[in-house]
Design a protein around this nucleic acid. Structure first.
Length: 877
RNA sequence: GGGCGCGUAGCUCAGCGGGAGAGCACUCGCCUUACAAGCGAGGGGUCGCAGGUUCGAAACCUGCCGCGCCCA
């Protein structure tokens, strides 16, 4: 980065104490503390205002703020601040989930450093340790959220393991149990042999991995059948071979038995519809205890299930392979089979889909075990219907398809985890096989032989209750009364299944069919400046705190929001963040300029009759922008909100309105413009505040002397201020100024070099009164006696600028410029002529379109005439 | 294998039936008393390919090619 140089003498006019550059570091912490201590973010359930509520998708207690959170929170904060300004009673409720596996892993790793395992401590002591860890090191993210500016209600911070939320968990468990929507069964589940716990389907990530495909001959002679498998080691647990019933190759073998090699067991050959005859040899080995599909086949054919591995995926079958883990057992077994001449084919590498634990990436081992499940079908049906019948809207709507695909085909949800950190399953088992589910106010059975289920619940089980458990459910609280259902859930589309579906299921179930949120606003994943996924191995991960340190929270937020187009991922790069920082600085300096020039927000806007066309124009533009921003927010178009405000602020306000206002502000007639500029900046800062809260707060207070922009009223569009005539005038003015500037640039005239020029034809477009302004912006002096033009500019609209460039002009440059203009005009002319020469076009195109083309043709013709004249007037050399 | 989405300027993306746009990058000229984190001007695209619909297609339809994601 280059050092900035300050060569100008400091301006002595009052600046409201604003330095020449915005320094976010000096503003952010101070402002945030003021906001929180003033209670601006504290929600009042007794308020008369309409409610707007968001519960934060609870981050993991072990986690820290990553760029995905930063995006998610920026959106939530933007909505919260917007609604607060719009007069809603806003609750944005913060908190964290207890992250069963992740947190237990962290603490176990700590213990391992002292050569201890959780079993050395025992369950009670271990859980105490985890709470200690949470108190000391957990929840780093909460502090980081303050850096980002999150306007959450800290007085209502919640944690999924809190007493109240735990009570909610037990309540819902008991209800579901009593409604037979929770059951315990022996099923094939996803097992992580490292975390030593069951996982739900969506905690498993599938990747295409290189493995091997081994074809093994079972049986001998006429009876032989060849099966293909990627998991040869599981053959020890085979209890059948399956073929497709229509497969001619094997029809004669169905119903017979073969000997399973290495074991001496005889297993049947069964026919099953689900076998794919085109895979491998068309015959598959069936291992019901170690493969979900095989388990199904086993069920259909009443096959026994033989578990051949323990919870660490170590072979337990007595014999030569006992004690080998699954990856040692595989080659050993293949070797043994090869020695027997039973290996028919070996394919390596063989690419196939493999499931991994989403926490630790260990390959998941399908495992037959006794677990608790939620019977999701009836719950999922309602969750789908709530979206189908419009009670809940998914934004963007295209993602609803994915939602339906999930909820309409949901498997039962395995909710038991073999962990100690979490909500323990409230079920007691008696000495005579009794099973008692205990509700929150009930006493568990006591006496000999009674024991509680050892497992805890999936973290997502408690997270699914978050929209109402955080508000005090199952008590009927004022918070629930006021703020449930929540207004919107903001989260990444990758969380659609984790969050949205499960919160919908439980919310509708627990809250008498009232949905947990009205709108689901899904955003994409944050990617790097080339659209690549961020990953540590790529080294392209952005730390939002680093950006906040170097560019400010506002710049970081603006960069994220500006990339957040509905449904698509959000690319960001440091250069763009610099641009956002620059934008904040631009606002800073525009306000600084305004303060140096005596702007005011006092009193009503001057009457329209007192306003100049310039003032009317910027007010008209402002009204358009307010309307656009409202529409864009209503459709969750954050990127376009940012874009609209960026261009209004930078182009309209700074590049044109401020420049045009300079001569007025320096004159005796500054009053009106001082008031209008004050108004425009006041409104602009309000409009930007939801996205970039810090700099707008600092500037708005400096500008208005008000208490805080966080509570200022959101601008409302006033159609009375829209002024088409003023907008047309300004467009014409801009055109003239830009044309002169282009000429000057092409001619290599220094910006400081004033040029004498005569302007004619301004009255054609009604901008003759703006001649002084045009001269000011284009740096043109009035002609004096003896003025002779050395060049002539023809501007669309019949305006002519005759310039005296004091000496020679660069004829070649000027000719090139005119030739370029001519080419453009000729292209325009040809296109319009072609259209107007087409009878079908004239007959079928709408009138306005035809009129527009005619107009374009006329303009092109007039331009060509003027350009030709200018070219003719050039000296020939 | 099933489903969804995307290919528009060097990069990242808007536009989704009537004149090809933005930000950044690039070129040229500037300390023009708010801002060099700035100002002014400029260059740059047969809108993936091929058909079709239409007076008119970047946009709608079909096919193909390439890329990505989700599910199995």
């Amino acid at each position: 980065m280059t050092e900035t140089t300050q060569t100008r003498t400091p301006d002595s006019r009052p600046t409201g104490g604003l330095s020449a550059q915005y320094q976010p570091g000096e503003v952010e912490q101070r402002r945030y503390e003021t906001w929180v201590s003033a209670g601006y973010f504290t929600a009042d359930p007794a308020s008369d205002k309409p409610a707007f509520s968001i519960v934060i998708p609870p981050p993991n207690v072990t986690g820290s703020l990553h760029i995905g959170h930063a995006l998610d929170h920026t959106i939530q904060d933007t909505l919260s601040r917007l609604k607060r300004m719009q007069g809603f009673e806003v609750l944005w409720l913060p908190g964290m989930d207890h992250a069963g596996i992740a947190t237990q892993n962290v603490v176990e790793r700590q213990l391992a450093g002292q050569r201890l395992s959780r079993h050395d401590l025992g369950r009670e002591k271990f859980v105490e340790k985890v709470w200690e860890w949470k108190a000391q090191s957990g929840g780093a993210i909460l502090g980081q959220m303050r850096r980002l500016g999150d306007s959450v209600d800290w007085s209502r911070e919640r944690f999924t393991m809190d007493e109240g939320l735990s009570r909610a968990v037990q309540t819902i468990f008991k209800r579901l149990y009593d409604d037979s929507l929770i059951y315990r069964a022996n099923r094939i589940i996803n097992w992580c042999p490292r975390c030593l716990t069951a996982l739900s389907d969506i905690e498993v990530e599938h990747t295409d991995d290189e493995g091997e495909l081994i074809s093994i001959r079972y049986g001998d002679g006429d009876n032989a059948i060849v099966v293909a498998t990627t998991r040869a080691e599981t053959m020890l647990g085979d209890t059948a071979v399956a073929v497709h019933p229509d497969d001619e190759r094997y029809r004669h073998l169905v119903g017979t038995e073969v000997e399973l090699p290495l074991t001496g067991r005889r297993i049947p050959i069964v026919a099953d519809e689900h076998v794919d005859p085109s895979f491998g040899t068309g015959a598959v080995k069936v291992t019901p205890a170690h493969d979900p599909n095989d388990f199904e086949i086993g069920q259909r054919h009443s096959l026994p299930s033989i578990t051949i591995m323990d919870e660490r995926a170590v072979v337990t079958v007595p014999g030569p392979f006992e004690g080998l883990d699954r990856y040692e057992a595989r080659p050993a077994i293949v070797d043994a089979l090869r020695e027997q001449g039973r290996i028919v084919a070996e394919k390596r590498p063989y690419l196939h889909s493999v499931g991994h634990c989403s926490r630790c990436k260990t390959t998941v081992e399908p495992r037959l075990s006794l677990q608790w499940f939620v019977n999701t079908a009836p719950l999922a049906k309602k969750a789908g219907d709530a979206v189908r019948d419009g009670r809940v809207t998914i934004e963007p709507a295209e993602l609803a398809k994915r939602y339906f695909a999930w909820v309409d085909n949901m498997h039962d949800w395995c909710i038991s985890r073999q962990l100690w950190w979490g909500h323990r399953i409230p079920v007691w088992y008696g000495p005579d096989g009794e099973v008692v589910c205990v509700g929150p106010d009930e006493q568990p059975p006591t006496g000999d032989g009674w024991r509680q289920d050892e497992d805890v619940l999936d973290t997502w089980f408690s997270s699914a209750l978050w929209p109402f458990s955080t508000m005090g459910w199952p008590e009927q609280t004022p918070e629930l009364e006021k703020f449930y259902p929540t207004s919107v859930l903001v989260t990444g589309y990758d969380i659609l299944f984790f969050w949205v579906a499960r919160m919908m299921m439980f919310g509708l179930y627990a809250m008498d069919d009232v949905q947990p949120f009205d709108v689901v606003n899904l955003h994409g994943m944050v990617r790097d400046g080339h659209g690549k996924k961020m990953s540590k191995s790529f080294g392209n991960v952005v730390d939002p705190l680093d950006w906040i340190d170097r560019y400010g929270a506002d710049a970081t937020r603006f960069t994220l929001a500006r990339g957040a187009n509905p449904g698509s991922d959000v690319p960001i790069s440091e250069e763009w963040c610099q641009g956002s920082r620059n934008f904040c600085n631009k606002l800073w300096n525009a306000t600084r300029f305004a303060l140096m020039n005596g702007v005011t927000v006092e009193g009503p806007l001057p009457d329209k009759t007192e306003l100049s066309a310039i003032d009317k124009w910027i007010l008209s533009r402002l009204e358009h922008v307010i309307g656009e921003v409202d529409e864009l927010f209503a459709t969750y178009e954050y990127a376009k909100v940012c874009d609209t405000l960026y261009h209004f602020a930078w182009d309209d306000v700074c590049d044109w309105y401020l420049e045009l206002s300079k001569p007025v502000l320096a004159s005796e007639n500054a009053g009106t413009t001082q008031r209008v500029l004050g108004h425009v900046l006041d409104q602009l800062l309000r409009l930007l505040h939801p996205v970039i809260p810090f700099v707008t707060e600092e500037l708005w207070i400096a500008l208005t002397g008000g208490e805080t922009v966080t509570k200022a009223a959101w601008p409302t569009a006033d159609k009375e201020l829209i002024d088409d005539a003023a907008e047309e005038e300004l467009a014409a003015l801009q055109k003239v100024v830009t044309e002169v500037r282009r000429f000057r640039s092409d001619q290599g005239l220094k910006p400081t070099q004033r040029v004498t020029a005569a302007l004619t034809g301004l009255g054609n477009v009604g901008i003759d009164t703006h001649e002084p302004l045009i001269r000011s912006l284009a740096r043109l002096d009035r002609p004096s006696a003896g003025f002779t033009a050395t060049a002539t500019l023809a501007v669309t609209g019949g305006i002519t600028v005759d310039l005296d460039t004091r000496g020679t002009i660069d004829v070649a440059a000027e000719r090139a410029r005119l030739e370029k203009d001519r080419a453009a005009a000729e292209k325009e002319l040809a296109q319009s002529r072609a259209k107007l020469g087409n009878d079908a076009f004239l007959a079928k195109a709408p009138e306005q379109v035809v009129a527009k083309i005619k107009d374009r043709l006329a303009t092109a013709e007039a331009d060509l005439t003027r350009i030709a004249a200018a070219l003719d007037g050039l000296p020939t050399t």
